[in-house]
Design a protein around this nucleic acid. Sequence first.
DNA 1: TTAACTGTATTATTATATATAGTACAGTTG
DNA 2: CAACTGTACTATATATAATAATACAGTTAA
Lengths: 128, 128
Amino acid sequence: MIKIDLKSSIPIYEQISREIKKNILKGFFKENDPLPSVRKLAASIGVNPNTIAKAYQELERNNVIYTVTGRGAFIAENNNKTLNKIPENLLNTLKNVVIEIIYSGVNEKIIIEEVKKISSEFKGKDSE
Amino acid sequence: MIKIDLKSSIPIYEQISREIKKNILKGFFKENDPLPSVRKLAASIGVNPNTIAKAYQELERNNVIYTVTGRGAFIAENNNKTLNKIPENLLNTLKNVVIEIIYSGVNEKIIIEEVKKISSEFKGKDSE
DNA sequence: TTAACTGTATTATTATATATAGTACAGTTG
DNA sequence: CAACTGTACTATATATAATAATACAGTTAA
């Protein structure tokens, strides 16, 4: 369920963080579900436990999960936030990608279709 | 015209590359226009000439500009490509950003509005 | 022709981020 | 008590990014 590309230039801990967010959005992970332990996930992916710990710490800082020393890591409560503005850092990243895509010769309509396709994979979070 | 954030985690040479692409898309830079010299641009931004050279080399590899030793760097001819598919690396980046934005609590519609707003800043390339 | 400019190449150095390795500690659980 | 949790720490290795200082080949205009 958590697939990592060890050859990617994207840091492993960042990939893990994203994969877990994806699984929550898709409904595979629900509130208070336990996450695999740092050591087990590290072993199954084939990376260092410190790398998993870093991912979990990043997720905890963003209130995606919570951890209890001795017990493990768990999916945090969905506080069901609704923003009507894209956070600035994400907006900048979005701008950069869209510009690169447009520069590559792809039409605006195709980009929008793709955005719809991506978001259609994630239900629940928006429809509530 | 070329604005760089020295504190950003995005490499300076990458920011420069993007800024030049933006200026081309906006029509500020046209075919065969000369670019500022490596040394002058470096001085005006306050970075090392090698960093600018690296940006120019990246742009030349992608056929965005061409360089003539002794004369300078120039905007390449617009081969006016039209793709109906987003290149895979850009698609992955787009997926990651959109997922992060959705996770932050922003609606699909708002994302699409933003994509339209971004692409509306760049005219000419698509309308031909 | 010469001086001042182009991009490019090279070597060395520094800083930072990422990942690994190994160990240790506090807390939990059966 | 044994086996598991997350966390913390030090040390090490690697890659990338950026700087610094030269040097070289080609161009351009005085």
